[in-house]
């Protein structure tokens, strides 16, 4: 194994560790931080089951965004399509992580390609809207462009790998499985893959320290995840 391969194998482990530990750290931090008071945005469900029912459409269909006006409808389109495509692309990529490849993952191969093609368009909507609307332009930070740019770069290099800078997939799969089985092997001989892979590592490292934690936050946001039963059940926290 050459030096570059050693470095990238190591970086991959570091990035994975940072992602997993960083994410878990936030999960634990949020879990341990108490909610001293009942603050569900009402009307809210009266039972835990009701909260699950409230959250499902929020997670799957970004329901609250649909309450807004035209700006949010555009955002919804870009955002929802982006997230769904992202999911499909990840599912498609699972064939590099499994051996033998389960039948269900094969199902996502073709649809994953389509998702990959739509993906940059959805991201384009998400970027362009930030320029065109004066309110969005005001609130947008460097970090917002950074992460959109990063994901666009990941998507584009992926497409380039698929259509223009084709690489030996057997090598790619061997590399990934090597990482997973803790028996690292040589990097595929493909600069484009190296770029694609590096960008993914950056995303992983960036994730737990950024707004991307909304992926977990949406499930535990007290205004949505609390049960509306303050009169029936006394809500207490240690400090309060």
């Amino acid at each position: 194994m050459n030096g570059l391969s050693s470095v990238f194998n190591l970086l991959a482990y570091i990035a994975a560790a940072v992602f997993v530990l960083g994410f878990l750290n936030k999960v634990v931090l949020y879990f341990k931080t108490p909610s001293p008071l009942k603050i569900p945005t009402t009307p809210a469900p009266k039972t835990s089951m009701g909260v699950v029912v409230r959250l499902i459409p929020e997670v799957l269909f970004f329901r609250s965004l649909l309450k807004g006006g035209i700006t949010e409808k555009i955002l919804w389109l870009g955002g929802w399509v982006f997230h769904v495509c992202f999911l499909l692309i990840v599912l498609r990529h699972l064939r590099f992580f499994t051996y033998p490849v389960p039948e269900c993952i094969m199902f996502f191969q073709q649809i994953g390609i389509w998702a990959g093609l739509v993906f940059p368009l959805a991201l384009l909507i998400l970027i362009v809207r930030r320029f065109l609307n004066d309110r969005l332009a005001t609130i947008t930070l460097f970090a917002d462009y950074f992460v959109l740019g990063l994901i666009i770069a990941i998507g584009s290099t992926g497409l380039l790998l698929k259509y223009f800078a084709r690489t030996n997939l057997v090598d790619v799969k061997a590399f990934i499985l090597g990482l997973l089985t803790l028996s690292p092997v040589q990097l595929p001989d493909s600069p484009m893959f190296l770029i694609h892979f590096s960008l993914v590592l950056i995303l992983l490292v960036y994730f737990p320290f950024s707004k991307l934690m909304h992926a977990w936050g949406i499930l535990i946001s007290p205004t949505r995840a609390q049960v509306d039963n303050p009169r029936e059940v006394r809500h207490v926290t240690p400090w309060a």
Partner: peptide, 21 residues
């Protein structure tokens, strides 16, 4: 340390702009 709402809200806003108007 004491308010989950504040901690989580400060972390997870994606500046989507849905609230701006």
């Amino acid at each position: 340390k004491k308010y989950k709402s504040v901690r989580v809200f400060l972390d997870i806003c994606v500046r989507c702009g849905a609230c701006t108007d």
